[in-house]
Simulated assay, not measured.
Amino acid sequence: MRDRAIDATRAVAIAGVVLGHWLVTGLVLAPGGDLSQASPLAAMPWLSPATWVLQTLGLFFFAGGYAAARSHTSAPRRLVKLVPPVAGFCALWATVLLAATAAGVPDVTLHTVGKLAISPLWFLLPFAALIALTGPLRWAGLAAVPPAIAVVAVADAGLGSLPLTLVAAWLVPYALGVALATGRLTAHRAGPVLAIGGAAAMAVLVLVLDYPASAVGVPGAGRSNLYPPSLFTLALATAQIGLALLARPWLSRRRTPRLAGLLNRAAMPVYLWHQSALIVVVTGSAWLAGGRALPGLHTTPGDLGWAAARAAWLPAFAVVLVALCRLAGQHTSTNRPSASHGSLGCKMADGSEPGRPLEVIAVRDSDPPSHSRAARQLS
């Protein structure tokens, strides 16, 4: 039996990450054909609160921690399952960039496209580290959270190192997911505390301590809440997890929507390839249009007109993303691809069928001791 609330949380997390990147990543086409990156948040900073909804990485790690704690698969095996999709991703993009270089694509465009394409790979460092730490986190419980917060606070003061800060920051939501799975966190008690406490911390950090209001980095800004993750990022993740816990009883009684199920089954391919889908649409449309800049794709993101035009392109990004997932699955699996049962057409990189979750991120809720605890948490 699957945990419907966690499925819904994971689906919201991956949808937020994808939509957030698609909406805030502007690629500007210069008259000479160069592509450079820009952000609508630089021109419209009053849109920053929208990033509080779309920056859902905290929920992603929270669901990942829950899944890892409930899994019967060992950490080494879970880490090995990451290799085929990542290797296929890197191989395909290496081929594309080498071909583009040989074809004489301008260096500015190569740098912009390459950086954007490989940007999802940063996720692997903290995620792999946290998978390896799942056993100790099961033992430590919530006691691991305060030291992790302290590491992030030190980094905010300019004294931390990026790898350690990345792991410490995302350990907080991951540990909360582990605690929920092992019965050390109860939804009805922790939900209000985390939601209210996280929101209050966000307000203090922005209004009193002068942290940026945007949950994502803004080109040209002197400080970012996401690179490296700051205390604001932890506060946002805490508030989002609190809301997810408050909604947990309601979500557990509802049937999982079909789209949520599809996103769960293809979470890793979708995460790896969503920026690539944006690149394919932007560059392909520029070629088809003969180098003419199209609104929302190649124009400078400076007003709400650009935002509306970008939103109109979202279906095209989604179609290309499905195609890329299927292509990637065919090149990273030795089994015959399948698009049955209404799946996204993404053959899982570990060779599993679309109807079965990639256990690196999603697992079945089948552990009897934890299952009984989860039932009590919903009461």
Rank of each mutant, 00 (worst) to 15 (best):
P295Y: 03
T300M: 13
G351K: 11
A63C: 07
G305K: 04
A190Q: 12
T283D: 03
S372A: 12
V320F: 10
G191Q: 14
L245S: 08
S276V: 14
V282Q: 10
S214N: 05
G351V: 05
M268P: 02
Q55M: 06
S74N: 15
S71A: 00
S352H: 13
S338R: 12
Q377G: 13
L344T: 12
G222T: 05
A187D: 06
S340I: 05
L171M: 09
A181N: 08
A99D: 04
V363E: 03
S352A: 12
S370D: 02
A63S: 09
I14Y: 00
C325N: 08
G305N: 05
L82F: 04
G135Y: 01
A311E: 09
R223S: 15
V28T: 15
A91L: 12
L54M: 10
A140N: 11
Q330V: 14
R189Q: 13
K115V: 15
L263M: 06
W313Y: 09
L54R: 10
P219H: 09
G261D: 11
W22F: 06
A266W: 07
A8N: 08
W306C: 15
P146L: 15
A200C: 01
G345E: 01
G296T: 15
K347D: 03
L180S: 04
L110M: 14
A148N: 01
A235V: 00
L125Q: 08
A13H: 00
A362I: 13
T56N: 01
L142D: 12
A349S: 15
T238Q: 02
N335F: 13
R336Y: 13
G222D: 13
A328I: 12
S36H: 10
R336V: 08
W139C: 05
D303G: 11
A100G: 06
A375G: 07
A68S: 11
P146V: 09
V152I: 04
A69R: 07
A68N: 03
